[in-house]
Design a binder for these strands. Sequence first.
RNA 1: CGCGGGGUGGAGCAGUCUGGUAGCUCAUCAGGCUCAUAACCUGAAGGUCAGCCGUUCAAAUCGGCUCCCCGCAACCA
Length: 518
Amino acid sequence: MAEKNKFYITTPIYYVNASPHIGHSYTNIAADTLARHMRRVLGKENTWFLTGTDEHGQKIERAAEKQGLTPGQFVDRVVVQFRDLWDKLNISYNDFIRTTEDRHIKTVQRSLEILYKNGDIYEGKYEGWYCTPDETFWLESQAPDKLCPDCRRPLEEIKEINYFLNLQKYQSWLIEYIKNNPLFIRPENRRNEILSFLTLNKLSPLCISRPKERLSWGIPLSFSASHVTYVWFDALINYISAVGEFDANDKYHSRWWGEDSRVVHLIGKDILRHHAVYWPIMLKALGIRMPDTIFAHGWWMLGEGKMSKSRGNVVNPLDMVDKYGIDTYRYFLLREVPFGLDGNFSEDSIIKRFNADLANDLGNLIYRTLNMVEKYFQGKIPQHDIFSRRYDAAGEEIKNILDFPASQRASFSRDINSSLSAESDFNFSLAFESIWRRISMANKYIEESKPWNLAKENKIDELSAFLGLMIEVISQVGRQIESFMPYTADLIKEQLGEKEIKKGKPLFPRIENKETDT
RNA sequence: CGCGGGGUGGAGCAGUCUGGUAGCUCAUCAGGCUCAUAACCUGAAGGUCAGCCGUUCAAAUCGGCUCCCCGCAACCA
């Protein structure tokens, strides 16, 4: 197998029928952290991070109508909200694809043509029950009484010509593929879920078109003037339309989708089936190799249940960022819950995390250290070769962990690398744990060394060696959190300075709980 | 028998695959320290690991049954 020295990570393209919420930001923060991390490991030029927006379909057509806009005007407005949020959250995407762009439309149409030509897509009849006022299709099993489950109005039976992708043809291949590639669908329980779904059910053909008279806001099929493309087919293609194209022989080429590239799709668990069933089959039928990993993360629960627009309990990420800061928000989402599991979101939990981890552990470590440098050395960082020096047992332990020039950069974050691998399910919270072990070790070491006594006893040499070591620890911690909390990493670098520290204010001033104490 | 996840000291979780001292964070209590953001360090109390039965020298961990909670069931991350 070719060595993977490139990394291509994607988020879903978000459906822009409403403003972004915490879930959108969760996926993008996770993807951003992985992208930043891989840029450090493989180099900037070998990492590509794609996000974007899904802009076609009925819901958007209707949302636009409600506001008296054309679909085009409507999506242009909502897209801005997404872009602004990503800027605000420091999301370092390389490319932002919109499904209304030419490059995308071209590739979708081309893909459809290829599949049509190969016979994987064929014309068929679609039968179902339709609620005209709601413009929604229902299966007979969903509406046994022939009444719309939503509005209770009578349904109308519809028969129309549509185009279908033959999924069943590839079903047994897909099962085998998933079985033979343990990293293909992660985490493990999702993989099992899909496997059991595929084993127990016969896949029915996927309808990939919609008649124009019902839906005009979509990509036209080149082989049928009266149809547009079904939104999910349209959407999934973004992963390849953004980074490559088909040649005259229907072969797909991409710098980021070659054998030397690791392709990772980050998604929420709700859209797992589209990504783990439809998408692989589409790729297979198009003669394109599989992504390496499709990872489905969990949901954030809010109070009593999952958050959703219909329940009206949506948390606006912008509010959280304004209130607690970008990196606090990033830290909380990545730290609170192992990636892949569901989590509970509450401001109380944010405050708890903030005070315990950011203010007390990290913030205070930096502040107390810098304060000593200021107090004992007038802010000048002691220029000691800390590695040539001998310390007591605790100091030696810290020094060993620093592990600095001897084994070069790579070993710096060995356990971070392994925590952030697909094999470990991109375990951000585990990575944080190992960083925080260093932080708490440093706090402990200060306690044991009692630098304030060294100062009183005028043991300047020991004191400066000690502080030199502490500065090195902090600087390393700063480098280690860089992918997770880029803004804070910058601040730390600034505070540490070259030869002289700039203490400034505490990075994370404690939040005192005024209102509620439970 | 639709599918899946879960029930571990007051709270939130890890540990279960590869049986063998029940671990972490927060909260509580006591002590220490004073460089620091009432922060930091040390120690303590607190759990029959949902229940029952079984396998085993040994079960939170394997098997069976029961009870309870929560998601999903095909366009909300």
